[in-house]
Design a protein around this nucleic acid. Structure first.
Lengths: 265, 265
DNA sequence: CCGTCTTGTCCATAATATGGACAAGAACGC
DNA sequence: GCGTTCTTGTCCATATTATGGACAAGACGG
């Protein structure tokens, strides 16, 4: 009687059934989360999840009745509702990672002077959870705390993918395929960047999500060896020439290792 | 063609179908949220939701796979997972209410000197969203930000119930019946307290949830007239005799009206 | 080693969620 | 005004999905 394999040590559990609807609702929520305050039109949720329109419509409206989703009067777009942060209050804030990373972020921000981001992996997305503004007058500020994107479209996402087994990374990238076009990229490009990052030891994007910017990201692994987060510097491209790229990468790598020690404690 | 009534002005929409499983999953989540960090054993979720054990088990484990729920190694209890605050980041923090209430809380805290709470209604629960510690050496601190309880078991809950149409209040109290016994109260007691609060103009509990304490709560209504929150003072009973109860209630009532003005803006 | 907890699993069955097809608005052009 | 092309919303027969009774397997205690 060994059907779903064991379930103790290995992480091969996924396929529990009898809850399609719940999984779908969560998939919808994650897409809505990517839309932040502004929210997302129904059609986009349909496209991003691959569900049919009636299904998404039904799910979204039930979630509205439950207070989990809100609808913007003006645009008709759907967004994460009040009740989500209310549920979140059940957990201790700030998280372990944020506490562990705080000194490193402060140190690196002072040393580097450009904008620093701390980004976590959540499912198939990256999520910006902290941001430090540097002292230089020209800062890349367009990415805010809470910003969520498919893994692979930012340098942080590339770094995180590079730090996991190639097969897992491929699976995630494939799962995000439908969402890539909105960011003007595709599976092949992303996989190429991931391979490059593996070779370099850190993630890099010559063309940041913001026009004219460049980003460098190092991954941060949990004690079990899986990448959980990334530390990123973004700056106008001209401020990150080859020599400085090297310098910045070294600082980021050093602090990433420090954070890894700190979460172990 | 008037089936589900209109849908524009009136708030009678509720009964959308085709999503039983999603609603159930959310009901489970709300119970887990009440368990905060410590979480809740399966049996208690079963009891509180009225669902069958196999159903709760299935739901909870799917939510674990999805990262929405976590399980405590030690106790086996289930709790709200990482991904919930991550979804919550999609919303602007702090909320409008928190911003609007801030000056009032500061003022009242200085004037009164005992612990002040701001509590919101969320579904059939109250949820503590802010707390101010006063200057007196003996403070009621056992209720923390994030604490969640069935509407009706705290003075804040009684105040909120008192401020809504009697019929709505009765419906909520009835829905919470199963959860009351854990707080050593029942439907009749709660309804009695609600009636008393309506007469007084504020909620009051001679026997607070903490032994030997007394609490006074005023409700805060949104512009549409529905109570959304409550402002509470808790203190050791001896510090809240009839004369001081009157004083404190007046301050709370004054600040509640101020907050109502502020959220209108 | 047996009773009494708890949590976990199975599977036939009924009920639920599904999605194709159609409808109803909204925004635009002319 | 009237077609055109968007978007979102609804219906309902159908098969897929979630359900829960019954049984199993640990964990604890005496």
């Amino acid at each position: 009687m060994d059907k779903t394999a064991s379930s103790k040590s290995t992480r091969v559990t996924e396929p529990r059934q009898g809850a399609q609807a719940i999984r779908r609702a969560l998939a919808v929520l994650r897409i809505l989360a990517a839309g932040r305050e502004a929210g997302v039109p129904l059609a986009e949720v349909v496209q991003a999840t691959g569900l049919t329109r009636p299904t998404v419509h039904r799910i979204v409206h039930v979630l509205i009745e439950e207070g989990i989703v809100e609808r913007h009067e003006r645009t008709g777009h759907y967004a994460i509702g009040n009740q989500v942060p209310e549920l979140a209050l059940a957990r201790p804030r700030p998280s372990r990672l944020l506490v562990a990373a705080n000194p490193s972020l402060r140190r690196a921000s002072t040393e580097i002077g450009d904008t620093l981001f701390l980004t976590v992996r959540t499912g198939n997305d990256t999520l910006c959870v902290d941001r430090r503004i540097g002292i230089y007058p020209l800062q890349v500020l367009s990415i805010e705390v809470g910003a969520r994107r498919p893994l692979g479209v930012s340098s942080a996402g590339v770094a995180i993918l590079a730090a996991m087994p190639a097969q897992d990374a491929r699976k995630i990238v494939a799962a995000n395929e439908k969402r890539f076009e909105a960011y003007r990229t595709d599976v092949a490009t992303v996989l190429g960047e991931v391979t490059a990052a593996r070779r370099l030891g850190y993630g890099m994007r010559e063309i940041g999500l913001v026009q004219g910017t460049k980003s460098i990201s190092t991954w941060i692994k949990t004690p079990d060896g899986r990448p959980a987060a990334a530390m990123t510097v973004s700056a106008v491209r001209t401020r990150l020439g080859p020599r400085r790229e090297q310098e910045v990468a070294e600082i980021l790598l050093r602090e990433a290792r420090t954070i890894e020690q700190a979460i172990r404690g």
